[in-house]
Structure formats: C-alpha cells, structure tokens
C-alpha cells in the first residue's frame, strides 16, 4: 500500500499533475488524485517523509530529467513537474527537521535594479524548488541594498542574479561589490544568468558561477550549495 502511494506520487510528478483537476502528459487523467491529494494520503498513512521525498518526488524528477535529456520532455513539461514537487515540498518543509532530514538550503534570487524581466528568473526559481531548495524570490527591479540586506537576514547558500539587458547586467557586478563592502561576500556564492550574460562576463565581475539556462543554473547551484554546507 505505502509503495503504491509513493509510486503514484512518483508517477504524478512525471505527469506534472499537482491536483486531481490537472491533465497529465496524456489525456484522461482529470479526476484521478494528483501529487497534492496523494501527499495528503501518504501523510495520513504515516509514510516516512524521507521515502516520500527520495522515492516519490526526487525519483519522479530523475525520470523527468532523463526524459528532458532524451528530447521527450520540453521546458513546460519540466516546469509542470517541478511545480508539483515545489507544491509538495511546501507542505513537507516544516516537517523536515522533526523527521531528521536536512534541508538542502536556501537560495535567494532577484532580477537587478532597472530590469523588469522575470520569466527566466521565475523558471530557475521553480526548478530550484523542484530540486528541494527553499527559494526566496525578491522579484525584479530590485535595489542592490535590498539584495544585500536579504543576504544578511536569510543567510542563503547561493544568491542568483538575473538581467536581460546589456544596460542592466553591470548591476550584477555592483551587487557583488556591495556584498564585499558589507563583509558578506565570503558567506554566499553568487550565480548569474540572463540572455546577455556569458561565462566570461560572470568571471569578470567575480561571480562564482554562471547558468546558460535554467537546468544548468540548477546544476551549478547544486555544486555551489554543496560546497558551502558545513
């Protein structure tokens, strides 16, 4: 029974279904329980949270990642699955500590001052949530000082900065500079991304990493975050 519920959670992550009202990859799934309803059943049945996460949620996302690499899934399919995992993790997050499970950590993301674009940042946010991180999204057009204050307050492992314009990408360097001046630079890794940003630019402003797209960004965050955990 417990394996059945966890298997169904895994299957519905693959199908990208949050609730019973959602369609799946194929038609005809409306009405069947989605990840939210199955999670309620799993918790009511007292199933181990570790199993729900590793075998159900992460197990499903592993398959989704493979399907994406094989060209079977596209970005929206990945987002649907990541959103389902994100919704489940929101419910599970408060129970992690009592279950003896370490959180993967906190990531702050923001689009820099004078830049109003946020779709790319949003995609990275949901993929990070799907990967099990707590994500604090500050929004777009965010003042350098607001970002520095958030880093001081929330102590994230990684700060993700986004810019879509050549006229605003330099602000990412301003943020790194401000972190240094505030004595916070050693406490947080910084990853940058956005259409005009390159690996070379990231290096030139002193960033720790660069994500060419959402999936690369998550991979880089995984590496950086594991390096900052004590």
């Amino acid at each position: 029974m417990s394996e059945d519920i966890i298997g169904l959670i895994r299957e519905n992550v693959i199908q990208g279904r949050i609730t019973k009202d959602d369609e799946g990859m194929e038609e005809g799934m409306v009405g069947q329980p989605g990840v939210s309803e199955l999670l309620d059943s799993a918790l009511a049945a007292g199933l181990p949270i570790r199993d729900i996460i590793t075998k159900g949620l992460s197990g499903g996302m592993d398959v989704v990642g493979q399907k994406f690499e094989a060209g079977e899934y596209f970005i929206p399919d990945m987002l649907a699955s990541a959103e389902a995992v994100g919704a489940a993790m929101e419910v599970l997050q408060p129970r992690l500590a009592s279950s003896g499970i370490d959180s993967k950590g906190t990531i702050i993301v923001a689009t820099v001052k004078d830049d109003l674009h946020d779709i790319g940042k949003n995609i990275v946010s949901i993929l990070l949530r799907g990967a099990g991180y707590i994500v604090k999204d500050l929004g777009n057009n965010i003042d350098t000082q607001v970002i520095v204050d958030a880093v001081r307050k929330d102590k994230p492992q990684v700060l993700g900065l986004s810019a879509l314009l050549t006229s605003t990408m330099a602000r990412m360097g301003d943020v790194i500079q401000a972190l240094e001046e505030s004595g916070l630079r050693d406490q947080v890794k910084v990853i940058v991304g956005g259409a005009p940003v390159s690996e070379e630019f990231a290096r030139s402003i002193g960033a720790d990493g660069y994500g060419a797209d959402g999936f690369q960004a998550v991979a880089v965050v995984e590496t950086l975050a594991s390096g900052t955990q004590s």
């Binding site: 199908q15 990208g16 279904r17 959602d22 369609e23 799946g24 990859m25 194929e26 038609e27 005809g28 799934m29 596209f74 970005i75 929206p76 399919d77 649907a80």
Partner: peptide, 13 residues
C-alpha cells in the same frame, strides 16, 4: 515556451 514544431504537446500544457 520552448516546443519545437513536431513535438507532441502534452494534454496538460
């Protein structure tokens, strides 16, 4: 949103 021309669109999307 990232699909190519000949991709089978999922029912969800």
């Amino acid at each position: 949103i990232g699909y190519n021309d000949d991709h089978h669109l999922s029912a969800r999307i």
